[in-house]
Design a protein around this nucleic acid. Structure first.
Length: 763
DNA sequence: TGGAATGATGTTTTT
DNA sequence: CATCATTCCA
């Protein structure tokens, strides 16, 4: 039991706690994961069968890391048998095993959000409702909330409060859409993300034998990030733990950042009601960060009213103050961060992987990507558009899905006419009408065109017949050959590869490469060997099982030495020596959508807390004075959150913007260095042409060289890409930070930094 | 029916 | 600005 010596008193108590309910409230950086992993290892060391342990996490990555770490303590062979994964993946697995009990096919499809919204869009259209009123996103959110609270379509209709909410919002037909949506998912043999939890609840509620079975399977249940569970998840856990009460939940109310998707902090508070004799362990010592960071973070979270009191403290050194940096623009912000990283690396030989840039929204990543590329700093972006959400990938997966489950309506709609085979809109409409009329999946109509009256002419029917035949030919091999052989066959025979190959634009080539990458991934999947059953063939349906639940963060190569860039949400649970929290501006962080209620604002503040506490050595906060949003240059105000940090922990910029930018003076060298490597043609554009043609100047702002300033003075007529023609009223500042006040008849008076604004001189 | 062109429209965060 | 959806034309 060597490992027990690596724990402090409170951690050890939590690890060796044997029977009965327990809760661990774990402050940021207090060794929460360590407690969970050692606790599981400890259970197994004490004779608990790994098969009887259920450990639920929020991301696949967290699950895998935990498994690895447990494996290091007790051996991989044992660790492999623990039921460990995300709520969604574990219960998808159970639902597949028990699918027939709720009349679902075992190989049901999992609809991702895109699929769900597309189906909703169709339903709204079919019901002749306005998609302005019934926006797919809004409708989906409403349905999702219902499911997360275990409200069936029938219960929804009976609930007068919900119904009147809808009618007051001008959406009285919401319940009809929900009803139809549920029906169509069922008919397609599909579940959406929320169904995985909702149907699990149904399964356990309606089938006492199954409840009994799983209660007796999972002797020990552990839940990570308990503060992020929603009602559906809470109830599953409660049901499964009811018999033995060996439930261990770990969480931190201060890090609850998923209330927007139904997570309920009350689940933590309810715990003491559900299990009155529970044991509570509080981990308050932070091992991650400096005193400054810990105390600054505490001063932030103190501003929230809703919280469980605890005092996070640390023995670590004091550390540097938290720097606040003011940038002129989003691009300037990017260049500040990249130069700062460059500098620190030069001074203290830190690897790239010691740095992370955290932002509120994925859209912010762009200026940082550009800035990092300019300095040749390798980086990796987590999140954003996941590999599996790219159009070409979804297209090919749709062929796979359709082959495995031909009732999958969304997959069918996606590929029936891609690549083009003459089955157009009107045909699809007729098929949909017939499908609804006979209450049969579209595939059923396609496969037996003469059984149903579709009103389609002969030519169309033969095209449809050819498509059906092709899918059927795929079906005939799908379980006989391994996943790679089938996938490759489908990619070729469907015509998809050929279609992509014909596109020689850079984007087209990238799409083709993505398809190759997917196929390669499937090849790897097929080549694995099941240690318990060496003869097992890994088929395409095997591959599809989890693919909808995979995210980008799952195929990481984390031995890579790269700067990490991600949203704060994605950074939860991670830590980095140097952290940059960027875009600290009103309406961005906190998001303007969170300003309506106290609770939403407090969630944003918790998000800020999460962001700061990712840092081990040094945290830097940056904001920009101007930023392009929705293609518009907009003025920004520093975030109110900056004032939530006690002043003593901050190093603020000086009053004058000029002094605040330590790299202002270096810009020229940067530009010169870049230009040095530029081909002659483009260098000329930038340097020698007195009136650069706007179209030719690249969108890299720093290329607008100092020479441009000379032509502009008060009274000069200029043209701006966005605001049109205008007249310069005032020029202030010094090289290279000239700022001009320009009056645009169309947009009013604007302050522009000449370094960045692409002004064309007209007079 | 297919494709290009144009227009509307929207961006939090994720399984 | 970027994506998507609808529209329009061949």
């Amino acid at each position: 039991m060597e490992y027990l010596n690596e724990l402090n008193h409170e951690q050890r108590e939590a690890v060796i706690h044997e029977e009965g309910p327990m809760m661990v409230i774990a402050g940021a950086g207090s060794g929460k994961t360590r407690v969970l992993t050692y606790r599981i290892a400890h259970l197994i060391n004490h004779g608990i069968d790994p098969f009887n342990i259920l450990a639920l996490t929020f991301t696949n990555k967290a699950a895998r890391e935990m498994k690895d770490r447990i494996g290091k303590v007790i051996g991989d062979n044992e660790a492999r048998n623990i039921w460990m994964g995300t709520f969604h993946s574990v219960f998808a697995k159970i639902l597949r095993m028990e699918a027939d009990r709720i009349n679902y096919p075992r190989n049901f499809t999992i609809y991702d959000t895109q699929d769900s919204k597309s189906l909703i869009r169709d339903i709204v259209k079919e019901m002749s409702l306005s998609d302005k009123v019934y926006k797919p996103g809004v409708v989906f959110g409403r349905i999702s909330a219902a499911k997360n609270n275990l409200i069936s379509p029938e219960a929804y209709r009976r609930n007068t409060e919900i119904m009147s909410e809808d009618s007051q919002a001008g959406r009285p037909r919401m319940v009809d859409i929900y009803t139809e949506y549920a029906k169509r998912c069922f008919r397609s043999g599909a579940m959406d993300f929320d169904d995985l939890l909702y149907k699990t609840n149904v399964l356990l509620r309606d089938h006492a034998d199954l409840l009994y079975k799983y209660q007796n399977k999972f002797h020990y249940i552990l839940v990570d990030e308990y503060q992020d569970t929603n009602f559906a998840q809470y109830l599953i856990v409660k049901q499964l733990a009811a018999a033995r009460q060996n439930i261990c939940v770990v969480g931190d109310d201060a890090q609850s950042i998923y209330a927007f998707r139904g997570a309920n902090i009350q689940n933590i508070l309810n715990f003491r009601n559900d299990y009155p004799d529970y044991a509570l362990y509080k981990l308050e010592q932070n091992y991650r960060s400096t005193k400054v960071i810990v105390q600054a973070a505490n001063s932030v979270i103190d501003k929230n009213t809703e919280q469980i009191k605890k005092t996070v403290w640390t023995d670590n050194p004091q550390g540097d103050l938290i720097r606040v940096h003011r940038a002129y623009s989003d691009n300037d912000e990017g260049s500040f961060v990249s130069h700062d990283i460059f500098e620190i690396q030069n001074q203290s030989q830190r690897p790239n992987s010691d740095f992370a840039i955290l932002y509120r929204t994925n859209a912010q990543s762009r200026s940082f990507e550009e800035a990092m590329r300019k300095l040749n700093i390798p980086y990796r972006i987590y999140g954003g558009l996941s590999f599996y959400q790219r159009k070409e990938i979804k297209d090919l997966l749709a062929y796979f899905r359709l082959t495995a489950n031909p009732n999958d309506e969304e997959a069918l709609k996606r590929v029936i006419n891609y690549p083009a085979r003459g089955i157009g809109k009107t045909t699809m409409e007729k098929l949909l009408i017939a499908s609804n009329k006979y209450d049969q999946p579209i595939w059923e109509i396609i496969a037996h065109p003469h059984t149903y009256n579709t009103g389609l002419n002969k030519g169309t029917l033969s095209k449809i017949g050819a498509f059906a035949l092709m899918i059927q030919s795929f079906q005939s091999i799908i379980n006989k050959k391994n996943a790679f052989e089938v996938a490759d066959h489908i990619a070729q025979e469907s015509g998809l590869v050929k279609d992509l190959n014909a596109d020689k634009t850079p984007e087209g080539v990238a799409r083709y490469d993505n398809i190759q990458e997917l196929i390669n991934g499937i090849k790897e999947f097929s080549d694995q060997i099941d240690p318990n059953n060496p003869d097992r063939i890994f088929t395409l349906p095997d591959f599809l099982v989890d693919v909808a639940l995979l995210t980008d963060a799952d195929n990481d190569d984390d031995d890579d030495n790269k700067v990490s860039m991600m949203t704060i949400h994605a950074a939860k649970g991670l830590e980095f020596p140097y952290v940059y929290v960027v875009g600290m501006e009103e309406n961005l962080f906190p998001s303007q959508l969170a300003l309506n209620s106290r609770s939403e604002l407090e969630e944003e503040r918790r998000l800020f807390y999460v962001a700061i506490t990712r840092a081990e050595v040094r945290a830097t906060l940056t904001y920009a004075l101007t930023r392009y949003r929705w293609g518009q240059l907009s003025q920004c105000e520093p975030s109110r959150f900056l004032d939530d940090i006690e002043e003593q922990y901050l190093s603020r910029p000086k009053a004058s913007p000029k002094q605040s930018n330590p790299f202002a003076g270096k810009g020229g060298f940067d530009q010169a260095r870049q230009q040095f490597y530029k081909p002659m043609g483009s260098a000329n554009d930038v340097n020698t042409s007195p009136k650069p043609n706007m179209k030719k100047v690249s969108d890299t702002p720093s290329q607008a060289s100092a020479a441009d300033l000379n032509g502009i003075r008060v009274g000069t007529e200029v043209e701006h890409a966005r605001f049109g023609k205008g007249k310069v009223l005032k020029i202030e500042g010094e090289v290279p930070n000239h700022k001009a006040t320009v009056y645009f008849p169309s947009a009013g008076q604007k302050q522009l930094l000449l370094k960045f604004a692409k002004l064309k001189i007209l007079s």
